[in-house]
Design a protein around this nucleic acid. Structure first.
Lengths: 211, 211
DNA sequence: TTGAAGTACGTACCTTCGGTATGTCATTTG
DNA sequence: CAAATGACATACCGAAGGTACGTACTTCAA
């Protein structure tokens, strides 16, 4: 068991991240002041700067928390599917759910790139939702008939990840999210069906060797 | 001909946007101070606040300029292609070029969503590069055999736009942009080839009516 | 030609906010 | 039990966005 002091320390740190998450989600990064965060957590800036190196650091803590929750949610949805195409569909649905959460939209999609910088942002993605998309893409596309190397698979993952992010974004801002999600489902379904034909007919070998 | 005063006014405004563009591109939005902008343009904050309502306003001016340049560049690349698939390929190449420009990456991709907000950001996109992608997507997918309504076409455009943004981003951060661009070319080529099979075989009617 | 009005700035200042330096009290440890 | 350390609180600083106000030059009407 942690020491008495450790437990107090942990609770204040968690309180800070809790408040920061709600404020960052509701008002965005720049419109959220550290004073507001420490006031909400009922501590002072001394406490915040004892636990975090600065505003960006506590943002990253919130960012990581939201991303890990998203990853967990998608992971639960995809596990237990034997057929890779079913797995892909299940993952897509879960992703479309996640991307509608205000916290994910504001913190990860909107503020993330600007606050972390594009490079750090992409590094963070690698280990989270992106990894799941990568897994699904590989299970679908990595066949012996196809001469797709590592980098090509990675390229496909990037493309699908971007496509799904944009699709999710369009769902999230839609007046009728349910109908929008259904349209995304259909569109991705068509694209995947096209790929499936290529895969199962083995006709893509020519495509990989084009210019 | 504009009046003498008008010309002076226009030149200072342009000088402000010029300097702002380079600073926003090099250091990002938050790391660029208004003092640095007005110093670079050799004016004072009074001039800046006479022409713009604030920091966000001058950022939008820079944003619009970069986006319109990008749109123009892609538009030039796509025009003159009769075959829609060739047009799509030409547009993709131009897009991959654009997305490697530091200004586009920093201002439009990285800072854009956070500064403008996701809604305003998407509104700005609608009238620019997005419109070109939409045009190409429609020329490729809007066939009589397909029962794709307006909203479905829009969904496809969103997905492709997101895919291309992500693809371009992966090219931009790559150690070997040329090879990365070639991989993106191949990947998108495969995806389009799958779609093409569906289109030309008219086999997508079933897909549009799936759940 | 002249004087009033408006434009295009410059100057000085205010406020907020991220960050720092330092003090303090409880807890742990030797 | 005293020294050391951890977990904060308090006070303060400087930078940066924004505002209020003054001013010089231009335009235009009489």
């Amino acid at each position: 068991m942690r020491s008495r002091r450790q437990r107090y320390s942990d609770s204040t740190k968690r309180a800070l991240v809790d408040v920061a998450e709600t404020l960052f989600t509701e008002h965005g990064y720049s419109a959220t002041s550290l004073d507001a965060i420490v006031a909400g957590a009922d501590v002072t800036k001394g406490a915040l700067y004892h636990h975090f190196s600065g505003k960006q650091a506590i943002f990253e803590a919130v960012f990581d928390r939201i991303e890990s929750r998203a990853t967990e949610s998608i992971g639960r949805a995809t596990e237990g599917h034997a057929d890779p195409w079913e797995k892909a569909t299940a993952g897509l649905h879960a992703f479309l759910e996640v991307v509608q959460e205000p916290g994910y939209r504001q913190v990860v999609i909107s503020d993330g790139p600007a606050v972390l910088g594009l490079e750090r942002y992409r590094e963070r993605e690698e280990g989270s939702a992106y990894a799941l998309v990568d897994e699904v893409v590989r299970s679908v596309l990595a066949r012996d008939e196809w001469a797709l190397d590592e980098q090509m698979l990675d390229t496909f993952t990037r493309i699908f990840f971007g496509a799904m992010s944009a699709a999710g974004s369009s769902v999230a801002v839609s007046d009728d999210p349910v109908a929008a999600a259904a349209r995304v489902d259909t569109a991705i379904g068509i694209i995947m069906e096209g790929l499936r034909h290529l895969v199962e007919s083995g006709a893509a070998g020519s495509a990989t060797s084009r210019t």
